[in-house]
Simulated assay, not measured.
Amino acid sequence: MDKNNAKVCEWCEEETAHEEKANVYWELPDGSRAIQISNVPSMSCSHCGMEYQEEAVINEIEDQLMLIDTKLIDKVIAYTDLMELPRLLKKNYFRY
């Protein structure tokens, strides 16, 4: 393991987390259904085994889902495709 590329894990606080891509499941803001988002920037810790998304990525996904027409999303969508969908508003005005 290359310690130079490792980051501190948010769960166990060891310097053994690495960036990777993961498939995640997300409930739409209206609660109507869940979707799978593929290739999401994620962290994986070789020490504790936790796989997670950093807060910035979580906020990006949640904001995007609030600002787009979610009817345009199939059951599965790639992270990059999701982030490129046109927004109905420029930003999430509920996030302070």
Rank of each mutant, 00 (worst) to 15 (best):
C12F: 09
E13Y: 15
E13C: 13
T16C: 15
A17Q: 04
H18P: 03
E19T: 06
E20P: 04
K21P: 00
A22E: 06
N23C: 12
V24H: 03
V24T: 07
Y25N: 13
E27P: 01
L28I: 13
L28M: 14
P29A: 09
P29W: 13
D30N: 15
D30R: 01
D30C: 10
S32E: 11
A34T: 11
Q36V: 12
I37T: 05
I37D: 01
S38Y: 01
S38M: 10
N39V: 04
N39H: 09
N39R: 12
N39W: 00
N39C: 12
V40P: 05
P41R: 05
P41F: 06
S42Q: 04
S42D: 05
S44K: 10
C45D: 04
C48Q: 03
C48M: 05
C48L: 01
G49N: 10
Y52S: 07
Y52K: 06
Y52E: 05
Q53T: 07
Q53K: 07
E54H: 03
A56C: 03
A56T: 07
A56Y: 10
I58M: 10
N59T: 07
I61G: 00
E62Q: 12
E62A: 13
D63A: 14
Q64R: 12
L65M: 10
L67C: 09
L67Y: 01
I68D: 03
I68H: 03
D69L: 06
D69P: 06
K71Y: 11
L72I: 07
I73C: 01
D74M: 08
K75F: 10
V76C: 07
V76K: 11
V76H: 07
V76Q: 08
I77D: 01
A78T: 03
Y79E: 02
Y79F: 15
Y79L: 05
T80Q: 14
T80R: 12
D81A: 15
D81Y: 02
D81T: 05
M83L: 14
M83Q: 08
E84L: 08
E84K: 08
P86R: 00
P86N: 02
P86T: 01
L88T: 10
L88I: 14
L89K: 15
K90T: 12
N92I: 08
Y93T: 09
Y93H: 06
F94K: 08
